[in-house]
Design a protein around this nucleic acid. Sequence first.
DNA 1: AGCTACTCCTGGTAGC
DNA 2: TGCTACCAGGAGTAGC
Length: 282
Amino acid sequence: MPELPEVETVTRLIRPSVAGRTITGTYVGWLRTLGGSTKPAFRRAVSGCCIATVRRRAKHILFDLERDGKAAGALAVHLRMTGRLYVERRGDTPAAHVRVALDLDDGKSLQFHDVRKFGRCVFVKDPDAFLAHLGPEPLESGFTTQVLWNALRVRRRQLKPLLLDQDFLAGLGNIYVDEALHAARLHPERRANTLRKPDAARLHTAIQRILRAAIERQGASFDTFYRTPEGQPGDYQHEFQVYSKTGQPCPRCGATIRRWVVGQRGTHACLRCQRPPRPPAG
DNA sequence: AGCTACTCCTGGTAGC
DNA sequence: TGCTACCAGGAGTAGC
């Protein structure tokens, strides 16, 4: 499922094809993808706009729009589970599962393809306000060990749901949380405020190292869903240490990797490397 | 604050 | 072969 590295890959690969282009028309195949707007309102908002910049924030792909050289809101695309974005020559009929398509002034079309319909392609007037609830970007310079530790020590939640919470830290999903916790030797059910600073330092290092490595490999293609805009799978799935490795030996210590549910999410861990927290006394 | 449950969706798969 | 039942999962929301 697309997380920060996959979304970053899509953003980078799609940028040269759409930056500077003008949107000349819209197609909407599934209304809910617009996130509450109507087809006419969506068309009015984006048609005739120039795509000024293409950027990523958390798991959103932002297309900043301009009309007559002035800022005119943005398109915010979230791939969720099965969304894909790609540019191709405009055809007569959109392919199956294309939920939104934007005609561009060079005869091509930006297509949002999404089998499970969880994804969103939303016009927002004020992208900053739209993104304001999000936590820090894990690869930006402001995200230091100290920042992470300060945030962890005042929370009592389990690490797994906390790290999945986009308001706490932006961009991680189920795969990279499991991988980062394993690399940092932290149990997914450990309470955030029980970590000591060296624990937070290991977690900080693990998150950044894993995300950077995954971006280098153009993300992970699991379940045959995620593809780059060029149709290529990523490579990072070959680096998974615990995710989807239920029953296999831990690459670090050889103990069997377990899968269970934490906070309604399938969770993978090595219980020798990642010691369970002591249950509260009494 | 933070927990659980529920919702949205469909392709894939297990069981018969 | 073909049917039904069930599952994964990001994020938003409701209720406690």
